[in-house]
């Protein structure tokens, strides 16, 4: 009957979707794995190894990520227009990727990694498969969450200029975020946390400043 026929078609369709989702999840887990390695390398940053050394290891994973996002994009090509159907399956991994890339970019350049730059780094610039802006913004919030810890550890290791730079960066970032009108969603909640990061960095900045420790700058790259 047509009824049975239709449900058979649906079954095909849904089974295919399940297959697709499994493949997407597999790639997402590889992404997660790569970010864990990247994160491990960057943690050394908290133990105040020299920045270039720290970055080098982490950068090695960018190529891997690029390749993985390329694979994701190819899978999604099989079902055009359904990006947002499966979005939840790589969403949180992508947010972590953005946070790490942005942290590395900031370490290197002292600037915020812009959305288009993030897409470029992941090789998504001219594909159908882009980086969702809200995911990008959540990733930036995640990066912000890491900064207080970074600052504390840098000061412990004797880098007394770090708080000033982070404070400037985070103040600007916070001001930029406040331009957005957010809904009561995950992004809003994450952004709400950013004010505590700012507050903590500011405290460290004062700690250093009132003790006259912030003076001995000098060894920081020129672009700061």
């Amino acid at each position: 009957t047509t009824l049975e026929k239709q449900f058979q078609d649906f079954r095909h369709h849904l089974d295919e979707s399940v297959g697709l989702r499994d493949r997407i999840r597999a790639v997402a887990m590889e992404i997660e794995s790569a970010t864990r390695l990247m994160h491990s390398s960057l943690l050394l940053g908290h133990q105040s190894r020299p920045v270039p050394e720290v970055l080098e290891k982490a950068k090695a994973q960018i190529g891997v990520l690029k390749e993985l996002f390329h694979r994701l994009a190819e899978i999604l090509l099989e079902c055009p227009g359904q990006y947002y159907r499966f979005h939840g399956d790589w969403r949180s991994e992508t947010q972590t990727v953005v946070s790490l890339l942005a942290f590395m970019h900031w370490l290197e350049t002292g600037n915020l990694l812009i959305h288009t730059e993030a897409e470029e780094k992941l090789g998504l610039n001219n594909s159908e498969f882009g980086l969702d802006i809200e995911d990008y913004l959540v990733g930036i919030c995640f990066m912000s969450n890491e900064l207080p810890r970074y600052v504390v550890n840098q000061v412990t290791a004797g880098d007394y200029d770090c708080p000033r730079k982070v404070l400037k960066f985070l103040t600007d970032l916070h001001a930029a975020f406040r331009m957005l009108n957010l809904r009561n969603d995950f992004l809003r909640k994450k952004f709400d946390g950013m004010k505590y990061d700012l507050r903590r960095v500011e405290e460290v900045y004062y700690d250093v400043k009132i003790r006259g420790l912030a003076a001995n700058v000098g060894f920081w790259p020129s672009y700061w």
Binding site: D192, K195, Y196, L198, R199, E202
Partner: peptide
Amino acid sequence: MRLAIGRIS
């Protein structure tokens, strides 16, 4: 509350 924490910063 949001405002206050921002003001302290």
